[in-house]
């Protein structure tokens, strides 16, 4: 393949998108998978499509509209979940469809052509600009800092919120901050994988890593690594095969997860292997004692 200035520029942009995409999605993904907030995140993703439509209609950057819709709906769901008489999953399902409906209506009534609409639905690296990358970079730094500084608090709130309330008065504040960060991660990664596919960018890496480790911090770190490998692999494959990038990334990730599952299935779980090791160790000790 000929290396032109266009190719070189595209290559740099792709690698940066993969880097920041995997950092943000890996950290946020570990949080939503561990806390079982995947359905909620799906609701936020699709609600944000309403903002994309509104962006088109008002002539502002659709991602700004999406961020607005995403954050408001995330906080709305979090708020409703405190009320005991609201069924959270119904509220999420409601927002999910409502956001899509609003988006479709806005796009329909927007006069003339709506450029790049497909790229918001299915993602496209070609349309990612310097501004998108800068936003993703800032969000990556915020995510790393926030999770590094407040690691223990986030871990314990995620594990058992009621118990966390016995030692911290900031549990509600943290829950809102976290869900807002998650919705920003989703919205900014829509540029890469699109509304339809972005959630898998968050959920597949942690599920892959959790086949090998059950430590929150390690799951987070290795999800970033696995996400980066999956994304660069997907970008490269989509480039050579000339197929859509977002879909290829997800395809590569799912393929990787399936392969890991099969390999894992053959060697047995880490638990049973450790049990065998423990037993061997115990035998050794008993043997020494008798001597």
């Amino acid at each position: 393949m000929e290396i032109s200035i266009f190719n070189y520029d595209f290559l740099i942009r792709s690698i940066l998108a993969a880097l920041f995409g995997s950092i943000t999605a890996g950290i946020a993904g570990t949080y939503i998978v561990s806390r079982r907030l995947v359905f909620l995140s799906g609701g936020v993703t699709h609600a944000s499509f309403g903002g994309i439509g509104m962006g088109y209609f008002l002539g502002v950057n659709p991602i700004v509209g999406a961020a607005l819709f995403g954050m408001v709906s995330a906080m709305g769901i979090e708020y409703l979940s405190h009320k005991q008489n609201v069924k959270e999953d119904s509220a999420i399902g409601f927002l999910w469809a409502f956001g899509m409906a609003v988006g479709v209506i806005f796009i329909y009534i927007t006069p003339g052509y709506t450029p790049n609409l497909m790229s918001y639905l299915f993602g496209s690296l070609l349309t990612i600009g310097g501004g998108d990358l800068a936003a993703l970079m800032v969000l990556s730094l915020v995510m790393i800092l926030f999770f590094a500084l407040f690691y223990r608090t986030i871990l314990y709130i995620s594990y058992d919120e009621a118990y966390a309330r016995t030692f911290s008065r900031h549990v509600t504040l943290f829950k809102y901050l976290l869900i807002v960060l998650v919705s920003l991660v989703i919205v900014l990664n829509i540029r890469i994988a699109g509304v339809v596919l972005v959630l898998s960018m968050l959920t597949i890496p942690p599920n892959f890593v959790m086949l090998f480790t059950k430590n929150f911090k390690k799951v987070m770190i290795w999800s970033v690594v696995a996400g980066f490998v999956g994304m660069t692999g997907g970008i490269a494959a989509s480039w050579y095969l000339d197929i859509p990038t977002g879909a290829t990334i997800i395809f590569v990730m799912v393929a990787g997860w399936v392969m890991a599952r099969i390999i894992k299935g053959k060697t047995g779980s880490s638990r049973s292997r450790r049990d065998i090791k423990n037993k061997l160790y115990r035998k050794e000790v008993i043997y020494k004692d008798v001597k």
Partner: peptide, 11 residues
């Protein structure tokens, strides 16, 4: 009864 989710990745 703890409200913690025992499948959570924590030691």
């Amino acid at each position: 009864m703890s409200e913690g989710d025992i499948s959570f990745p924590v030691s």
